[in-house]
């Protein structure tokens, strides 16, 4: 067992009167490649936003790198690619380089200067995702798949220990998806970056991730293994929820 990157205990959360998470506990271990699945509206994005401290649970505790999230301040260690990453204002006149450089903030700090060594980090992150030659392109003129690679580079530039992704493969063709997973694999295995990925594509994460969490009706269920045996049941779950919860050995 490695160290815990995130630990949540007994968290409950609701928007107004609508309850989304009900007494959920789990942890993310260093080196995990974790998939989070569940039907639309089951609270996957909400859970991610709680991990990131963007919203506070009404009950329970969140610890990040063994620190209470209220006191945590090393945000460079955490990368986040939101569900609507590529739905930014497409007319924004920034280059790929400018966008990726923005996330140097955790390294250079408030009013800090960006130096040559920092620019090399930007180049390196872009090289990792295969977008170095597009450095000077305006981000809005790239394809959705290319933009997503830029957002991965943007997360990588602050040297994160963990990257959270919310449905990163939506709107990406098969080929790009394949290379996306290749990239994820090398980040996870070679660089030891912990990956947490929300997805609906159970078929694709099957065999690729080492743990699966599934959210349903406010509860979180865990599967240690790859989902291969269970994937039929999962697919069914999106249609018939009752049979799913019963068939799972939770």
């Amino acid at each position: 067992m490695g160290t815990e990157i995130i630990r949540v205990e007994n968290i409950s959360f609701g928007y107004g009167r609508v309850n989304v998470l009900d007494n959920v506990s789990t942890s993310i271990i260093d080196g995990d490649f974790l998939g989070i699945v569940g039907p639309n509206g089951s609270g996957k994005s909400t859970l991610l936003r709680i991990f990131l401290g963007l919203i506070k649970p009404q009950k329970g505790t969140v610890r990040v790198f063994d620190t209470d999230i209220e006191k945590f301040d090393q945000w460079g260690k955490i990368g986040y690619i939101p569900q609507k990453a590529t739905s930014f204002n497409q007319g924004f006149p920034a280059t790929v380089e400018e966008v990726v450089s923005a996330n140097l903030y955790p390294i250079v700090g408030l009013a800090g200067r960006i130096k040559k060594a920092h620019k090399e980090k930007v180049d390196e992150a872009l090289r990792t995702v295969g977008m170095l030659e597009k450095k000077k392109s305006i981000i809005g003129r790239l394809s959705g798949g290319q933009q997503q690679r830029v957002f991965i580079a943007k997360a990588l530039v602050s040297a994160p220990r963990v990257i959270f992704m919310d449905e990163p493969t939506v709107g990406i063709d098969r080929n790009s998806e394949e290379s996306f997973y290749e990239l994820m694999k090398s980040l996870n295995r070679e660089r030891g970056i912990t990956l947490v990925m929300v997805t609906h594509d159970i078929g694709a994460i099957d065999k690729r991730v080492n743990r699966v969490l599934c959210l349903s009706e406010g509860k979180l269920y865990e599967h240690d293994c790859a989902v291969s045996q269970a994937s039929d049941i999962f697919k069914e779950a999106y249609g018939k929820r009752d049979s799913w919860t019963i068939t799972h050995r939770h």
């Binding site: 963007l54 301040d73 955490i78 986040y80 939101p82 923005a102 996330n103 903030y105 955790p106 408030l110």
Partner: peptide, 8 residues
């Protein structure tokens, strides 16, 4: 939001 998450 990204800026906030970066700790700004």
């Amino acid at each position: 939001e990204g800026a906030e998450l970066a700790g700004m």
